[in-house]
Design a protein around this nucleic acid. Structure first.
Length: 827
RNA sequence: GCCGGGUUGGCGGAAUGGCAGACGCGGUGGUCUCAAACACCACUGUCCGAGAGGGCGUGUGGGUUCGAAUCCCACACCCGGCACCA
């Protein structure tokens, strides 16, 4: 090999320009609905168009593209679409700042992003692209809202809601993180507002139980996060009679076995029940307390170590098993929107109740026997029931001595028989608050008529288009900016034709993204949201790649939508994503990249310096896809060096295209087929970093073969170089095309097909058997792969190094695992 | 507090009951060069040894096994989810 060849490289700029042009003209990745090939749907979470692509996009798209390109090479018809989640606040804020329309910002960014994706050599089918802010798309978002309304799954209610004072809009529970707005970080407060909700709780049980089905192919952390979020608990509803009220008050408890320890009742201060129960005498104190608690921020309310507070409502309830008359209190430590908003106070068994009872001077009774060494206050562990009933107390129920589980069962059975309670299941999950007081979103397609109330906009009048507002009109004012568009708001009632007003809220952008994967199957359909047959043909998605930050938000909502669509008969599956993969973050020097830290790495700079292929390769090779990548630990230059090494192989091959590899060097042929076999398996397992290592090994083996014995003319060298080009096409499309061309082939290597693996070449000619003495390696033997146990044992015992290690000691036992290992136990 | 995941060279990571450290980064030495950079070649867990070779080694401590990074028990630490949800 000449010195010239050793240093030869290709020019990154011109090579990228050359192939981009060829790909743009040939469209090798258009998905055909009517293809006879087996179908695969590769989906990656579509981005919000916040500007140009950044390192995070570069990573997820590189990983995703490996899978999509692999499927094409394996002969599948692949649906690999991309679009933009283009409604949302940043566009609105940019519009206010620049006095323009949000669409200007949005659609400008989208165009930039598409060009960047094309340059980044992503195998997306751009013929199917759309944006959630397109009226042709949000028309169907609105249609789906109406369908949910028809089914009673979209409804309006007045309730205390999470309010972000910075964004001036309400937030879903899922968007409040540790009392702060998930988007802007402002402290969230509560407001009493009438808002639209989706009844996702109706599907709580199925959303939870189907996680078992998804668990094998979804990341553990997503499954766990969703399980925790749904938060199923088993317990009982128990009715307590209240003096002077016909209806009893019902509580939810997970510990019905502790009912004998109930010494008071606690009601959420902000619940309607508290307001109803309070006596006239206690009302002033109650209202003062309620006013006080309303001023608390979410942060204050969540701090668990502050003293318990409350007000006696002045009424008395009756314990159904003891007949004891106990006081009813209002407090802020009980949540209005969980369970029934009321709890039985069992200070002996619940630490919060213990603290409350201590604070208020209420009675404490233990109903579970703690262990002798127990030093805490309330005891909620395992132990026999005591004081249930207490000595001298007369009760029709006696659970003394029973274990917690037995006592629960016995208590529920008794309550059910008595008609004062029953077993119940509760969920932490709340209904999904979907209305937002912002402009740049899908308008809620409802008209408010003084006569007919909430009237759905007739389907043939969809879409309800956004009125043209810009600049200062969009400033947050605490009510939706749409309210300012008077002409738009004033309309007529679809039912009676009388004057009416439009709903001025827009939908949470998570509504837009809950069904976009369906739309890709028939993106241009003007008559329906999606074509059921096409959706059933392509979906569920065979893989869905995206950030773990959506573990409970988007992924839960999309699952919910799919189940509703299945119940509507529009799709014949109940889960949208068969497999899921979360990529990690790209960080720099151990910290998340951010402007304030000044540690940002600009994707554009990296691409300019090392080229698209080297950046993609670096991101894929860095480690397991779900781990974070510290860019400071990475070497895009090393990636570039490797790509050039691989590329040089194609220039050294001297045999003609189409040469039969059959007579080629067997050792290199084995390496080639082993690499093809392993790489395929590793892609299926999403172990892309190891797959890259296998390609590197083959490049090293091919280099050696060219430089030494078989030489550059050996047919096995061509076979190996072509295999490298094909495998590399998953990660480094430009280099792979360039190699393929230099090897004398027509484009595109991306659709060349994965070479068939010759099983015969996967069997090694000889393998290394390890000989251990007392479990320590003492010798290595080259043996035939089908060597018999007896032959291997004899060879091992005859080995001089083994004899030396045995040092004359008697052989007690020999374990033989032909052809890999012999372990000799001596002693 | 409850639930889930993790801890392997100087670094990113391989190896899921059978050769620990594949592959790469970094480092050291060399070749090329007037020189440097680039590129290429060799070595590179650690300790002892001139070498041959040997000892030690996968967070800690125990266990199972002929054999454990891998399985089991306990503990420590790190990351993530939930948390006044009764």
């Amino acid at each position: 090999m000449s010195e010239q060849d050793e240093r030869a490289t290709y020019d990154i700029e011109s090579t990228q320009a050359k192939w981009r042009k060829i790909w743009d003209e040939s469209d090798p990745f258009t998905a055909h609905d009517d293809s006879a090939r087996e179908k695969r749907y590769a989906l990656t979470m579509f981005p919000y168009p916040s500007g140009d692509l950044h390192m995070g996009h570069a990573e997820v798209f590189a990983l995703h593209d490996v899978v999509a390109r692999y499927w094409w090479q394996r002969g599948y018809e692949v649906l690999n679409p991309m679009g933009f989640d283009s409604f949302g606040l940043p566009a609105e804020n940019a519009a206010i700042k620049n006095d323009e329309h949000p669409a200007t910002y949005t659609y400008g960014n989208i165009e930039t992003s598409i060009q960047s994706c094309r340059n980044y050599a992503l195998s997306f089918d751009w013929s199917r692209t759309f944006n959630t802010s397109d009226p042709e798309y949000y028309r169907w978002t609105q249609w789906l809202f109406l369908k949910f309304m028809e089914r009673g799954l979209a409804y309006r209610k007045n309730s205390p809601v999470n309010w972000c004072p910075n964004d001036q809009t309400v937030l879903a529970n899922e968007q409040v993180v540790d009392g702060h707005c998930e988007r802007c970080g402002a402290e969230v407060t509560k407001r009493e507002l009438t808002q639209w909700y989706f009844r996702i709780t109706e599907y709580a049980e199925e959303l939870l139980s189907d996680l078992d089905v998804l668990a094998p192919t979804w990341p553990d952390r997503v499954i766990t996060a969703q399980r925790n979020w749904i938060g199923r608990s088993e317990g009982a509803h128990v009715d307590f009679a209240v003096d002077g009220r016909d209806e009893p008050m019902t509580v939810y408890t997970t510990r019905p076995d502790t009912i004998f320890g109930t010494t008071f009742m606690v009601v959420a201060v902000d619940s309607p029940l508290a307001d109803e129960l309070v006596t006239d005498a206690q009302r002033p104190a109650f209202e003062a307390y309620r006013e006080e608690t309303r001023k608390e921020t979410e942060i204050e309310r969540l701090s668990t170590d502050r003293p318990k507070t409350g007000v006696d409502l002045g009424v008395t309830a009756t314990n159904p098993v003891t007949g004891d008359r106990i006081p009813v209190w209002a407090t802020d430590y009980v949540l209005a929107d969980y369970g029934t908003g009321a709890v039985m106070g069992v200070p002996g068994g619940d630490q919060r109740d213990w603290e409350f009872a201590t604070e208020m001077g209420l009675t404490i009774i233990r109903t579970t026997q703690p262990p002798a060494d127990f030093e805490g206050e309330a005891f909620h562990g395992e132990g026999p029931a005591i004081n249930s009933p207490a000595p001298g107390v007369d009760s029709p129920l006696d659970i003394n001595g029973l274990s917690v589980a037995e006592a629960k069962r016995a208590t529920i059975a008794f309550l059910e028989e008595q008609g004062s309670g029953k077993g119940a299941i509760n969920y932490r999950l709340r209904d999904w608050l979907l209305s937002r007081q912002r402009y740049w979103g899908a308008p809620i397609p409802v008209v408010h008529c003084p006569e007919h109330g909430e009237v759905p906009v007739p389907e043939d009048q969809l879409p309800v288009r956004l009125p043209e507002l810009r600049g200062a009109d969009l400033k947050p004012k605490g009510v939706s900016p749409l309210a300012a568009a008077t002409d738009w708001v004033q309309t007529t009632c679809p039912t009676c034709g009388g004057p009416a007003t439009r709903d001025t809220d827009t939908m949470d952008t998570f509504v837009d993204s809950s069904w976009y994967m369906f739309r890709y199957c028939s993106p241009d359909d003007e008559t329906q949201a999606f074509d059921t047959d096409l959706v059933n043909q392509w979906m569920p998605c065979d893989i869905y790649i995206g950030g773990v930050e959506h573990a409970v938000l988007h992924l839960l909502y999309a699952r919910f939508f799919t189940k509703v669509l299945a119940d509507m008969g529009l799709v014949d599956f109940r889960e949208p994503f068969s497999a899921q993969l979360n990529q990690g973050f790209v960080i720099n020097r151990g910290k998340k990249m951010s402007k304030s830290l000044g540690n940002g790495v600009r994707l554009g700079d990296q691409l300019a310096e090392f080229g698209v292929d080297a950046v993609r390769l670096t991101l894929v090779f860095a480690g397991p896809p779900e781990d974070d990548i510290d860019w400071a630990d990475m070497s895009p230059n090393g990636s570039l060096r490797f790509l050039q090494r691989a590329w040089r192989l194609s220039g050294d091959v001297t045999s003609a295209p189409g040469t039969d590899p059959a007579g080629g060097d067997v050792a290199l042929r084995r390496a080639t087929h082993r690499a093809l076999h392993d790489a395929a398996e590793l892609v299926e397992l999403h172990r892309f970093n190891v797959m890259v290592a296998k390609i590197m090994e083959l490049v090293n083996a091919t280099r050696k073969a060219i430089d030494s014995d078989p030489g550059p003319g050996d047919p096995a060298v061509r076979e190996a170089a072509e295999a490298v080009a094909i495998m590399l096409s998953l990660v480094a499309p430009y280099t792979a095309e360039e190699m393929w061309e230099r090897l004398g082939h027509q484009p595109s290597v991306a659709r060349a097909g994965w070479p068939a693996v010759d099983e015969a070449l996967l069997v090694e000619e000889s393998v290394t058997a390890v000989v251990q003495v007392q479990g320590k390696v003492k010798a290595r033997l080259e043996v035939a792969p089908d060597v018999s146990d007896a032959d291997l044992e004899a060879a091992a015992l005859a080995d001089p190094a083994v004899q030396r290690a045995l040092d004359g000691k008697a052989v007690r036992k020999v374990i033989v695992r032909a052809p890999k290992l012999v372990n000799i136990v001596a002693g």
